[in-house]
Design a protein around this nucleic acid. Structure first.
Lengths: 354, 354
DNA sequence: CTGTTAGCGCGTTCAA
DNA sequence: TTGAACGCGCTAACAG
């Protein structure tokens, strides 16, 4: 009850616990860490009880310093206000927690420079590894990580030989388009997404495959360029509305784009799905609750997050086990909703009547 | 070129820099930290150049251990997939970065138990302070923080004597309702939000004040209970649609609720704003881009975030300066859009015709 | 299984 | 202004 008693403001240290329990500090340390076999002993439990009664909590800075690792991983996302990124990060954080790790997040705002800077900042704070979700066709930070041998995984994106976990975007694009084909559509447009985004490219590839399979030629005039934003969806809608000829259905690479597009088209007086069917991608919670619930492609973010974390921790632990370092791809699912229906009956124009 | 040369895998330490620069380690330390006057000297710049050429980056674990602080604050939010929370956190993180601090985020999913646990986890990892956004009328974690003397700030919420930075919800509710009154509405409903949420309560108070000011009695049958979710907006819509008498306008405490409500009402065939005007709250980016852009109350999240961080860092630094420890309130702004218009002309029923 | 010893990398006295 | 010495709190190596 003296001497090693903790001073007023400061928290008890391992030495306080050792003194109170009448053992050496190293013994306390072993009693606190699952890694040691001693952890499971009865006296270890007693020591932990003492620790708890003192309100002792190990100082992670000290432990990290000594252990030479932080048990923390960094996650780079474009924006947290993007529901897709927020969802993915929540799942990553929870996967980390389940494995005794911490997650740290930083935003890149789609800027490769910021991606690099924030990646370096996280590395400077000694994260054990990085999950990147913002890689473009240019590679950016991940090339450097590869060279430096820093453990990292790409999620929702793939590039070069970096390990990655992605949704099967080509399949998703195929499912979306196939759904429209099955409904009887023959004139199917696409909002393409940005050219630098491999995901967008892959979804478009799936779109092409579904069209080809159905023997439908791809119509360049039904291709509307866009980025992933709602604004670009609106811009695409203007192109759509202003064109001489319109498709009866549209596949948007992304829910946001679909929302912007749909809203603008509706404002112009078209009815969804009566006049036009629309399919989105990602199935963010919102789209199921719009005035016209949106058919969308659901991506298993939880599974992707878990796989990415597993792969990363494998690298951190040095066991680049089965399939780590490789590219893992998980399949998406189509969720049909009210925004898609059979195509409108065309006015009985010059169809085999001439 | 020998001896202190960094081993292959490990990064250079302050000792490596000292050796390379031909000075003592303490000199390097002073050259790296702005706090020292020496930092601004010419030789300090030279030392930093050497450090950079070696790729030296201070080990934060070691520095934190020594300094007894982490330069990191923790932020507790309900969910990152909630755009409001994501926005606030982005702003907090950027305010922290501007002040040389780091931000850490954890989610509570609205569960007081999780709030407590995650708060403790962050404290265990030695964050210098906490920003809470999830306090309810029950207080929860913040009571404990107050007792333990842990620096903390509530953002978007207030409770007890904890310092807080909030939007002026009563004013927001007033502005929203006043806008409807000015358009000529006399029958104005409200989606209330959860009873335990002080923000919801305050917004409702503003609603009442605007009604009273216009000499409009509050109609209990125009009060639809809800939480903050889209689902609850849909539920409220069902109550609305099923009722014998309906208001001509509705103020929703929250954009999500407004979206759920509006969608459902539109699906039932009502037109916004022709048949019904709707106002939301928070002005998340989405609502300006819906098929019918939603009138909403914009909250200055950036300002709130900056003020919260400032207040917190004041506490951390021990300078509980002017107004810190107090409650700061910032004013919201009404953003009128297409979802609000003059009330429909009522069928010329039994009005002064009997 | 437990204690002793050493040191992780840094910032900060205290002298010079 | 600079350097020497110390210790932050912890874990790992090495006895015993």
């Amino acid at each position: 009850m003296e001497g090693r008693e903790a001073r007023a403001g400061s928290r008890p240290t391992i030495a306080d616990v050792a003194a109170a329990a009448g053992v050496a500090r190293s013994t306390v340390s072993r009693a606190m860490n699952r890694e040691h076999t001693f952890y499971r002993s009865e006296s270890a439990a007693r020591i932990r009880a003492v620790a708890e009664s003192l309100g002792y909590e190990p100082n992670p800075s000290a432990a990290n310093l000594r252990r030479r690792q932080t048990n923390t991983i960094g996650v780079l996302v474009s924006r947290l206000t993007d529901t897709v990124m927020a969802t993915l990060y929540e799942e990553i954080a929870s996967a980390c927690a389940a494995r005794g790790y911490h997650a740290l997040v930083a935003t890149t705002y789609g800027d490769p420079g910021l991606e690099r800077d924030n990646g370096h900042t996280m590395l400077a704070s000694r994260v054990d590894g990085l999950i990147l979700t913002t890689a473009t066709t240019e590679g950016g930070l991940c090339t450097e990580l590869l060279e430096r041998g820093v453990p990292h995984v790409l999620a929702l994106r793939a590039y070069g030989s970096s390990p990655s976990v992605t949704g099967d975007d080509a399949l998703g694009g195929y499912l979306a388009t196939r759904h429209l084909v099955d409904l009887g559509h023959r004139e199917i447009g696409i909002l393409t997404g940005p050219d630098e985004a491999p995901t967008a490219l892959a979804r478009r590839e799936g779109y092409r495959r579904a069209l080809a399979e159905a023997g439908i030629p791809e119509m360049p005039e039904f291709v509307y360029s866009s980025t992933f934003s709602m604004e670009s969806g609106e811009a695409a809608a203007e192109a759509f509305l202003g064109a001489a000829r319109r498709p009866t259905a549209v596949f948007a690479v992304n829910d946001n784009t679909a929302i912007g597009f749909t809203s603008m088209v509706q404002r112009a007086g078209l009815r969804i799905p009566t006049d036009l069917s629309v399919v989105g991608y990602n199935d963010i919670p919102l789209v199921g609750r719009l005035a016209v619930p949106l058919t969308s492609v659901r991506v298993p973010f939880r599974e992707i997050a878990a796989a990415a974390v597993d792969s990363l921790l494998d690298q951190v632990a040095g066991r680049t086990g089965t399939g780590s370092g490789a590219a893992r791809v998980v399949a998406p699912t189509l969720i049909p909703r009210a925004s898609t229906a059979r195509p409108p009956v065309r006015e009985p124009a010059a169809v085999s009547e001439g």
